[in-house]
C-alpha cells in the first residue's frame, strides 16, 4: 500500500478553495462560540448593573443611620481622625421594624391581601385558561388576544378607570341606584374590596398565561384514560388534571403573589388610607419621613420575606423531580 504524504500534494485551484472554505467555516465556528458567550453575558451584565448593584446600595443604606443631611444617611466607611478606616454598621433599622407593630402588621396584611388575591386569581384564571386550551384554534387565538389586550393601555390609566367605576358617584353605584337595588351609594372605593378588585383585575392575566402554557401541553387522552378506568369527571380532575397542571399553578401563583405583595399603586389609589400595604409604608418612609435607612430596611426585609419561601419551594421541587418527573 502506498501512503502519500499530504505535503507532497501540490494544491490545485479546487483545493485552495477548499482550504479557504475550511478557514472561513473555522472562523465562523469561533465566532459562534463567542456569540454564545455574548448572548449569555449581556443579560447577566444587565442584571448585575441594574438589579444587583442597586440592591447592594439599598442594602448599604439599610445599615446606615438617618441624618438630616444630603444624602440623608451616614456613610458606611469613614476615615477616623488618626487616619484609620472604620466601618459603621447599624442594625437598628431592622430591630426597629421588628419592634414597631406597624411594620409587622403591614407585612402580614400585605401577605394576606396578596394571598387571597392569588387564590381568587387562580379560581378565576384556571377555568378561563382551561376553556381557552379546549377551544378551537381560531377562537383560541382571539381569546388569548383578549387576555393580553388590557396591557395595551397603561396600568395607571386602568386603575384610574376603576376609581371612576367604583366611586360614590361612579358607574356601578349609579347603575345600582337606577335599578332600584340601593337607595344611596354604597362605599366601594377606598376599601379592601376595591383593592382586591384592582389586584385581581390587574394580575389575572399573569395567572392565565402560565396556566395556558402548561395546559397546552396536557395530553387529553389522559382524561380519556382516566374515564376509561372508571373515574368520573370530578375524580379525573382531582387525580389527573390538577396534579399535572401543578407547575402552571405554581408559576402563575408566584407571578401574582410576588408583585401583589409589594403593590403600591393599587392600595394607594383604590384603598386610600384604609388599606395599609407594605409598598405604601415604604413610599411614606422614603418620601414623607425622609428616613432612607428605614425605607431601605423595609425593602430588604420584603425581599427576604418573598425570596426565602421561594427558595425553599425550589429545593423541595428539586428533591421531588430527582425521584420523579
Amino acid at each position: 500500500m502506498i501512503i502519500m504524504k499530504p505535503t507532497a500534494v501540490k494544491s490545485t485551484g479546487i483545493q485552495r478553495y477548499q482550504q479557504m472554505f475550511a478557514g472561513v467555516s473555522r472562523l465562523l465556528q469561533q465566532l459562534q462560540a463567542q456569540w454564545k458567550s455574548v448572548v449569555v453575558t449581556v443579560p447577566y451584565f444587565w442584571m448585575l448593573l441594574f438589579f444587583l448593584a442597586p440592591f447592594f446600595i439599598i442594602l448599604k443604606i439599610s445599615v446606615a443611620e438617618s441624618l438630616i443631611a444630603s444624602p440623608p444617611f451616614s456613610d458606611l466607611l469613614e476615615w477616623t481622625r488618626d487616619g484609620a478606616l472604620s466601618i459603621r454598621l447599624s442594625f437598628e433599622n431592622y430591630s426597629y421594624l421588628w419592634k414597631d407593630d406597624l411594620y409587622i402588621n403591614t407585612y402580614l396584611g400585605s401577605v394576606k391581601i396578596a394571598g387571597i388575591s392569588t387564590l381568587l386569581c387562580l379560581l378565576l384564571g384556571y377555568p378561563i385558561a382551561y376553556a381557552i386550551v379546549r377551544s378551537p384554534p381560531t377562537t383560541k387565538n382571539i381569546l388569548l388576544m383578549l387576555v393580553i389586550l388590557p396591557f395595551w393601555t397603561s396600568f395607571l390609566l386602568r386603575v384610574y378607570a376603576w376609581m371612576g367605576l367604583l366611586a360614590d358617584q361612579g358607574l356601578i353605584n349609579d347603575l345600582l341606584i337606577w335599578a332600584g337595588i340601593i337607595d344611596s351609594p354604597i362605599r366601594l372605593l377606598y376599601s379592601h374590596f376595591a383593592v382586591y378588585v384592582g389586584i385581581i383585575y390587574t394580575y389575572v392575566p399573569f395567572m392565565i398565561l402560565p396556566l395556558y402554557a402548561n395546559m397546552e401541553k396536557l395530553d387529553m387522552t389522559l382524561h380519556e384514560a382516566a374515564a376509561d378506568l372508571g373515574a368520573r369527571p370530578a375524580v379525573t380532575f382531582l387525580t389527573v388534571t390538577l396534579p399535572m397542571t401543578w407547575p402552571g399553578i405554581v408559576a402563575g401563583s408566584l407571578l401574582v403573589f410576588i408583585p401583589a405583595t409589594g403593590e403600591f399603586i393599587i392600595p394607594d389609589l383604590l384603598g386610600g388610607g384604609n388599606v395599609q400595604m407594605i409598598g405604601r409604608v415604604l413610599y411614606n418612609e422614603f418620601h414623607s419621613n425622609h428616613d432612607w435607612p428605614v425605607a431601605s430596611a423595609v425593602a430588604v426585609a420584603l425581599l427576604v420575606l418573598l425570596v426565602l419561601p421561594m427558595m425553599v419551594y425550589q429545593k423541595v421541587q428539586e428533591k421531588e423531580s430527582g425521584s420523579g418527573w
Binding site: A225, P243, G324
Partner: peptide
C-alpha cells in the same frame, strides 16, 4: 365494562 389500551399508552406521567 370495557377497558382500553391507548395507542400512545396514555400512562399518567405523575
Amino acid at each position: 365494562p370495557v377497558n382500553m389500551m391507548f395507542q400512545s399508552y396514555a400512562l399518567f406521567p405523575h
